[in-house]
Design a binder for these strands. Structure first.
Length: 147
DNA sequence: ACGATGATTGTTCGC
DNA sequence: GCGAACAATCATCGT
């Protein structure tokens, strides 16, 4: 499958079958956990707001491989942990497992996500195109018809 | 009852 | 290249 990934050159898939060629550089331990005041202070998390209005603008971002894994993991996790409460717990476990997962195991999720991005790419292309064309160009399609 | 939050990693955009 | 924001999800807290 000689997909013209390079064509996009965007990011394609950062999956490298090569093991880590880099050996840890324990030359100097910087701040592993120490916080880096490099950036401004911003809310730990600020996502998900409420769709007061419909996102008539940019297309929503497709779920990442991690999320796909989450879906599967969730079900499995719940079976093993019927006492689990919600994603927060699952997510934690998922994240840890995700790191333990190998490239081959993750690749199957990456692959799925990759396809999703392809679809997203289209929506994005249109979005950008429309944006350049005229963001004002709003159409009330879903608007009432019978006015 | 509804709103926002928290926790996970990945991806993408903007400059 | 980095920074910032956001994607799914839902129990749970707050009002």
């Amino acid at each position: 499958m000689a997909k013209d990934m390079a064509s996009h050159g965007r990011m394609v898939l950062r999956v490298r079958p090569t093991e880590r060629t880099k050996r840890s550089a324990s030359l100097s331990i910087v701040d592993e956990e120490e916080k880096r005041p490099k950036s401004v202070k911003k809310p730990k998390t600020k996502q998900k707001k409420k769709s007061g209005k419909f996102d008539a603008k940019k297309p929503k971002k497709p779920p990442t491989a991690f999320f796909f894994f989450l879906e599967d993991f969730r079900k499995e996790f719940q079976e093993k942990n019927p006492g689990v409460k919600s994603m927060r717990d699952v997510g934690k476990a998922c994240g840890e497992k995700w790191k333990t997962m190998t490239y081959e195991e993750k690749v199957q999720y990456y692959d799925v996500a990759t396809e999703k991005r392809a679809e997203f790419d289209r929506a994005m292309a249109e979005y950008i195109k429309r944006k350049e064309s005229g963001e004002d160009q709003e159409t009330d399609e879903d608007s009432e018809f019978d006015g």
